[in-house]
Design a protein around this nucleic acid. Sequence first.
DNA 1: GTGAAAGCGCTAACAT
DNA 2: ATGTTAGCGCTTTCAC
Lengths: 346, 346
Amino acid sequence: MPKPSARTGRVTIVDVAQHAEVSTTAVSKVVRNAYGASPEMQAKVRKAIAELGYRPHAAARGLRGQTYSIGVMLPNIRNPFFADIIDGATEVLEDAGYQVLMGPGCNGEAEEARVTETMIDHSMDGVILIAPVSSRQHLEHVARSVPTVIVGRHGRSSSYDSVADDDLSGAALVVNHLADLGHRRIAHIEHLETDPDHIVEMPNAVRADGYRQAMRARRLDEHIDVASTTYTQEGGYLGAQQLLARLHQPTAIFAGADIVAMGALEAIAEAGLTVPGDIAVAGYDNTMFAGFAPVSLTTVDQRGRQMGSTAARLVLDRIAQPRRPASHMKLAPTLIARRTTAVLPH
Amino acid sequence: MPKPSARTGRVTIVDVAQHAEVSTTAVSKVVRNAYGASPEMQAKVRKAIAELGYRPHAAARGLRGQTYSIGVMLPNIRNPFFADIIDGATEVLEDAGYQVLMGPGCNGEAEEARVTETMIDHSMDGVILIAPVSSRQHLEHVARSVPTVIVGRHGRSSSYDSVADDDLSGAALVVNHLADLGHRRIAHIEHLETDPDHIVEMPNAVRADGYRQAMRARRLDEHIDVASTTYTQEGGYLGAQQLLARLHQPTAIFAGADIVAMGALEAIAEAGLTVPGDIAVAGYDNTMFAGFAPVSLTTVDQRGRQMGSTAARLVLDRIAQPRRPASHMKLAPTLIARRTTAVLPH
DNA sequence: GTGAAAGCGCTAACAT
DNA sequence: ATGTTAGCGCTTTCAC
């Protein structure tokens, strides 16, 4: 007959200890698989835990030791690419016995700061920050309080680990694909970046750079043509409008993200042009909707799942060895060719 | 010169108290805006807090009082409709001084249980569960431990509040829209449901029911035609294949969710039919991609933002008054007519 | 290998 | 209005 502590109704370590007729220390050790508990002890305690339905209270744990939970921050719930990262990370973390909690989508440094602080306040054992826009300074501040992994950003720091897509190669994949199809006037829609840190570190900036490099490598220097807007549907719409108004209209548009490509397709349709007959379009991210039949968008796959699982392993690693040197992973993307860049049967 | 407590490096309430030369109780009261602190006291304490950069430790708070944080569980990060709910909820909660943490997307009762337990273990002051599939029993168990609001499910319970879309009307909006366009053979793709609780409570079941009722109301009883699959892209694909193989092919398909409609469009394209010329298609949820130019899917908008903000207000309400009677809100959906059901210029 | 006791940061109950 | 104290549930010394 379970007799949980009166106040909250929650079964505590004390209840388990009494039920199993051992000390609370013993219970704590068994729960944590710590050294110093004989097999009989383990059996007794586990039996009591099962009978009472005991669960460790994460908040209480956080006051002394670990909470066995990891916080994941993501910039935008709407981008399904991030969901892949989450899936990959969650799988590894839960298998390792960690709980996962996510911050609500946030855009802007202020919101990111709030979310990271929330995670620290909840005594998370580690945090995974996906595509953060905060300053390096803030990221390093976070990394000083808690093991931190940054996903999808190129800056390297000795205080945190990172996992990023090789956006430079990814952009080249697109340019080469389009050039191989015979396109020469290949334009790009980029997310305008002014912050000097971001120009070096953010994926969008690296993609734009990769576009330029690849164009030059294909001797298409003179056809380099970039519209600077934002990585949003509207940004794609406006960017494509700009490009279509050029004296020499491009025959292909490389949008820096799938969502940008969706806006571009809208502008192209409004202009009465067909895809890929009049103009080819490619995106980046291989988001879910890129594969939908009416969309069928050529894009670049970043292996989000793998990015997530890698990030999870890195954060667990660093929890185990807080002072090991930082490691920075770069994952190779692949091209997914679909109808928006197909050679049309004429 | 701040002198944070040695061990963790974190500024604690004790540091603030010493710096301001008051008791820790005083600091606690000021932080919580509790009764019993003179204006001068408040000023002194706030000054010290600002100077030291103090932040309350949520985990420690959880051991005694409130953590000022709310957990939000959502079934699937990929469905952008849920993002609207989150936005609505987060805005209200953060304005009220609450932190928001979300569980990672989960499908299935086991994962939902894990997420809800995690939230309880972290001493969340309340939880918002979006479209849970767990048994009533589990939901009531959760509601017994923590103030709970269920979003997007029709069952009413005295132990938790709820906010739901009026799926019955939503389905009728679609059927009437299609019937008004002249369609008679309007078929439906539903998510097969066998659990008796779910048949009454889940939105998909209510939509299927609404479809049948609306068809009867329009005297189209004999044209009622349902394919039972799942609410996934693949389910839509298979469902549409079934429907297209009928002796009397439908002229319109009402898919129970936008993602289902995407699968249906794929099957229709493969069959060499055009939309809306040969067959009209409508979805439900007004997800982001429904509005994309190449998709342009007619659908039903559930006012996700409003659902979220309502849920947030309900949970705050219940935290303030734990024993007030449960309230159950139902929000009216609206039809968004787009190209997939348009009357074609012939 | 085992347990007693201190204490993490905070709040509630109880003085004053 | 203010301060003192006990204790939330757990982990971590440090005895034995």
